[in-house]
Nucleic acid binder design. Structure first.
Lengths: 204, 204
DNA sequence: AATAAATTTAATCAGATGATTAAATTTATT
DNA sequence: AATAAATTTAATCATCTGATTAAATTTATT
């Protein structure tokens, strides 16, 4: 019986699982939660995915692709280093804005379960690109970019993009923001971030 | 029977709970985990704290005090706005460095359980201080501080201090850092952060 | 020293959880 | 149309979990 909505059962389970795992984390999510969200019977988790853990691993893998998408797509493009940074900021800000729980989900899971790091390094391989490193060094040598270790840059960018989403509940509460206030704040904040980063990193 | 170490049973349970909750979160922690860590019998959770939830609430409350300590202690001191920012950076960096899992713990819990925000606003009350706001406005008017909404500053500072700890597992993996490499990186990074923030915020 | 109160222990409970099972149903193949 | 294969369902299982219970032990009080 193919489902009512022309979506396969497997896909329905995965979509429901992604939603609930993102909200409640692995431990806080029961197979019955997922089944309810999908409108299916909980035995199907095991029929299609063998275990809750394997279902989670699949969801986590896909979310990591999304998390690192900016790095993999932007940093390998034929752009100057400066252009890459600005493009990365725009790209990542868009991704995280569309998936506000993503960062918290991935980073918390890495605290909870460091073994998942084993597979994750591959996805972040573009960070370790020697091409990028050489490009960076040339930009420093030409006086275009501030002379700091590239590792700091690769931390400053996600810090200033992701933290606002990680701290969203807190920020909204402290400043009494409704959802639309927060959206306006996001628009402003990304401008501040770009200005600050440019001001510090780009010397000419 | 007072325990071997001259610490009360209640304190031993709380300390063990804080440790395990910080590692595994609420859902991932069992009362038996805590009992084992404390070297006690799990029925004592209920004897002393009535429930796992109440034990957690006590631990969470204390961790929030620590999380907001910089804000409550530094922002109310008789310092210029600029001095406050620099003092806050140093203070917070020290707190989070000593408690690297703190930020992830608090912020993830607020995602998982937004009801905890009800009590949290009180602890962050110094953020909403009219004294601070006036001081900030004066500093802007005198051309000392960049003219942006203070909310952005109150986000940039924790972003650049806390994110490095939230993303610690990932950063260490990506850059193949051992613990001492990471400590060195921290020393460098805080310098970069201070320089970037000063460069952007402080106009004279 | 005897008694009361507090604390601790070990066993047990009721409900929840991931997983399994077997039957029912649907889809695919002959 | 009959049969086989795949999918779904509902019940059940074994284990775990927070909580309770009653007995044992320790500490405090008289």
């Amino acid at each position: 019986m193919k489902c009512l909505l022309n979506e396969s059962t497997e896909e329905r389970i995965k979509a429901a699982a992604a939603k609930i795992f993102m909200e409640k984390g692995f431990d806080g999510t029961t197979t019955r939660d997922i089944a309810k969200e999908a409108g299916l019977n909980s035995a199907l988790m095991n029929y299609y995915f063998r275990s809750k853990e394997k279902l989670f691993a699949g969801v986590f893998d896909e979310m990591c692709e999304l998390f690192f998408h900016g790095l993999t797509e932007i940093l390998s493009q034929p752009l100057s280093f400066k252009e890459k940074i600005l493009a990365l900021i725009d790209h990542d800000f868009k991704i995280f804005r569309e998936n506000p729980a993503l960062s918290n989900f991935i980073l918390n899971e890495l605290h909870r379960n460091p073994e998942r790091l084993i597979d994750i390094a591959k996805k972040a391989s573009s960070i370790r690109s020697t091409v990028l490193e050489k490009q960076f060094n040339d930009a420093v040598a030409s006086g275009e970019i501030r002379n700091i270790d590239i590792k700091h840059i690769l931390l400053l960018i996600p810090a200033n993009i992701q933290f606002i989403f990680i701290s969203k509940p807190l920020t909204m509460k402290i400043h009494n923001m409704c959802e639309s206030d927060f959206e306006l704040f996001l628009d402003e904040h990304i401008k501040v971030v770009k200005e600050m980063v440019a001001n510090y990193l780009f010397l000419k």
